[in-house]
């Protein structure tokens, strides 16, 4: 690893964006919005996995998932698992996805979020949770994919400001 290449780069921007995403995830938006709120952590995680796959990947995804599990009083380990999987797939196809136009990326994001929602639903069914099949989860997936261009453009601006590769 070449150390000199990292001088002057503001890597803490990545941590800040994850912190903001965590805040958005637990923010009180009222009962109706809370059901449809997209998974901010997943969106931010996908962006950084595509942009800097050598820095952000499975480990970061798993840690953020675990923090989200604790912050939202969920079953510990569930979101950690799905976020690690999302990070793994996004990291794997990072070079290919980066060449896509934004709307095609949004389709890929839709598939990733849909996969996560499916896994969460299946796990919730296995655990016998009463809200396993709530339809709001799928609306949230769609909203997340629609929001991808916004996330992409704002995080890209942040990344360029921070002089990250």
């Amino acid at each position: 690893m070449v150390r000199i290449g990292y001088a002057g780069k503001r890597w803490w921007v990545i941590a800040l964006s994850f912190f903001l995403a965590l805040c958005f995830s637990v923010m009180e938006l009222g009962p109706m919005w809370a059901l449809w709120a997209p998974d901010w952590i997943s969106l931010v995680l996908i962006y950084w996995c595509l942009a800097v796959p050598m820095r952000v990947g499975v480990g970061v995804g798993w840690t953020m998932g675990l923090l989200l599990d604790v912050a939202t009083f969920g079953l510990i380990g569930r979101l950690a698992l799905t976020k690690a999987l999302i990070a793994y797939i996004a990291q794997r196809f990072a070079l290919r996805l980066r060449a896509f136009p934004v709307w095609q990326q949004a389709c890929a994001v839709f598939l990733l979020l849909g996969m996560e929602a499916l896994i969460i639903t299946l796990l919730a069914l296995m655990m016998g949770e009463s809200d396993a099949g709530r339809p709001g989860r799928w609306v949230a997936v769609l909203i997340g994919a629609v929001l991808w261009p916004v996330i992409f453009i704002s995080l890209r601006r942040m990344r360029r400001w921070a002089r990250l590769p």
Binding site: G57, V58, G59, W62, G65, L66, L75, I76, G77, R78, A80, L81, A84, L85, A87, Y88, Q91, R92, L123
Partner: peptide, 16 residues
Amino acid sequence: SRTRFVVLALLSLVLM
């Protein structure tokens, strides 16, 4: 990253 994913996935299952 694949081995790391497998290890962390198993760890999450244990946690759950």
